[in-house]
Amino acid sequence: MEERNKLEAAAGKLRFERRRERQKALLLGIISIFIFLTVWQMLCTLHIVGENVLVSPIKVIQAIWIKAGDTRPDGNTLLQNILSSFRLVLIGFGLALVIGLPLGLLMGWYRPLDKFIRPIFEIIRPLPPIAWIPIVIVILGIGTAAKSFIIFFTTFVPIVINSYTGIRETNQVYINFAKTCGYSNWRIFRTVGIPSAMPLAFAGMVIALGNGWGTLVAAEMLASNSGLGYMIFMGRSYGRIDIIIAGMLVIGLIGLALTAALELIEGYVLKWRIKEK
């Protein structure tokens, strides 16, 4: 009985210590952001940095607040711009997922397919998305298809690579067991290969989404009349540094939110993974 109590006490103490650790980390994070913002504000208030170079955090927040309802100077409200960019990334990322995930998995499992596709893939892979713009304009025009393609391109590569690697790393023991059970190669692919590849595949998706969201500025450079990248370009044309930084901030925050959302989904789908404490 006493032993039991001692154990419980020890476990409780451990939980308490862990919570303290987390609180400390959170506090440190908040402090560092606070220091960062203060330094930034100081640089602007004391005019150490000119107003045409950097705008204070307060003005940036103001710009966001005002832009929420104001269409100036680019002709869209902040929300319209967000939705426009979001749409592009959704289409590009969605396509990359639908095409890239099966492709990577199949390439990783079936050697002949791998050998066939590899060379093309390796050539395309290192090309920067901006380099595609001239060709894309001629082939796909300047609408959503063209811009989504740029995004598709940056999201496609990590998804394929990660699902490929993920399935290649499938533990041979699992495959052997399935073989002895009498499963066909196709069924082993589905019941062993694919689930085993999911952790890495998801990691690839998270990277891809980050890439894709970050590429929206380049994609909107192609031609646009709305979007966060467009908003930043217009800010530049009209000398509105506050809008430029506001745009960057919004892009950054939404990117964070998207990653967090995806990781939440990952946590649910992959709930069988070893939980790291």
Binding site: N171, V173, N176, T180, G182, P195, R273
Partner: peptide, 18 residues
């Protein structure tokens, strides 16, 4: 493996984690 029911237990734990 198709004709017979063969079962193999390996040295490493081979329960499918998923």
């Amino acid at each position: 493996p198709k004709k017979h029911n063969l079962s193999f237990i390996f040295q490493e734990p081979s329960a499918f984690p998923w």
